[in-house]
Design a protein around this nucleic acid. Structure first.
Lengths: 203, 203
DNA sequence: GTCTATATTGTGATAGAC
DNA sequence: GTCTATCACAATATAGAC
């Protein structure tokens, strides 16, 4: 349960975030959120009017915290290999701290695909800078020929998938051992950037 | 709508599969399935008793069709690089034919994480054969030193993620252009195995 | 087996006392 | 602002005619 020292509205918000992020919109009950916040469910409506509005508040807040760092990293002006190491390390680290975000995001986008367009517009994600950097490195002969789009999707896949599919992977290849899987994720920070750089570096 | 030449039970089942796979359990309505099957919703209960049971029938059927081919490919006795090309090509191809499966699977596992254990037991997925093969290649000095678990998760990530996160990726780096993204996925069959083999091959 | 009509239940939302 | 009690509605499930 959420601790009681904050204001009521904040307590509701924190409780809603916990529940929504874990279960998604449709598997979450207002009753459950109220209980998590240590109050009656009528109060949720008093402060947020409807379940949908409460959810939107949570979703927007999570996006606001999650998207800008990524957008920023993509535009950072440092050498490519350094940048890959930097992004992978930071990104996996932040996913270790917030492991449910990928599923939360995938589910919500599935439910309401429209909003992805708004999110991109709102936070001004521009992968073009990163694309350009990759193309420059190819022309300079420093890395092998690869479509920038393929490379960036590879990077995202390698970072995010192990969190989105955790129960499956943990069950399939780690005998459902939570600690082993945590260790695996921790090591992955180095492994993934090694894997990528190994693949695109000319030897 | 489902065509009417099959038996009623099969019509229901096909309709339910269409709806459930697209929307997941909680966003699907019995009414909608009935409509899709061209009949009254009372019939769904007559044949399948409850929504939950109908869903389980669909889920089990999908798993039965999706899991064994993967399990089999992992144990196939062919050289490692060939095997990687084979798995990636076949796997991405099957995802192109059934693009909603990853999200369907992730959502359901999230809702009911218990069952993953049963599925693994039921279909006898054994990655050990593949692990052993990788370790042998490392000892023989044919590929670089890498944890087999990391490699296999890399392979799965690179294949599955672009389907699970399609709306996001399509929006972020393909200006929401469906055709471009389909083309991208098609090319990926070759790109992914090249990417992996490039990374682990000793040069 | 298939339908219409109805019962039952779960849950989001509101009214009104305090 | 916070609570209890209640409403309203949607969706699953069943009864019963044919």
């Amino acid at each position: 349960m959420i601790k009681g020292n904050q204001g009521t509205e904040e307590r509701i918000f924190e409780a809603a975030k916990n529940v929504f992020v874990k279960k998604g919109l449709n598997n979450s009950r207002m009753q459950e959120i109220a209980q998590e916040a240590g109050m009656n469910k009528a109060l949720l409506h008093y402060y947020y009017r409807s379940k949908e509005k409460l959810f939107q508040a949570v979703f927007n807040s999570v996006m606001k915290r999650v998207i800008p760092p990524i957008a920023e990293m993509l535009e950072k002006e440092i050498p490519l290999f350094e940048k890959i190491e930097f992004i992978v390390d930071r990104y996996i680290n932040s996913l270790i701290s917030n492991p449910q975000i990928p599923v939360f995001f995938i589910q919500e986008i599935q439910r309401n695909p429209q909003q992805i367009v708004e999110i991109i517009k709102k936070y001004g994600i521009k992968p073009e800078v990163f694309f350009q950097q990759i193309e420059n490195e190819i022309k300079a002969g420093n890395i092998i020929d690869i479509q920038p789009q393929q490379l960036i999707v590879n990077l995202l896949s390698l970072c995010v998938f192990p969190f989105a599919a955790r129960p499956v992977v943990q069950g399939m290849i780690f005998e459902n051992d939570k600690k082993k899987y945590d260790q695996f994720l921790f090591e992955r920070k180095k492994e993934v950037s090694k894997f990528i750089i190994n693949s695109i570096r000319k030897k």
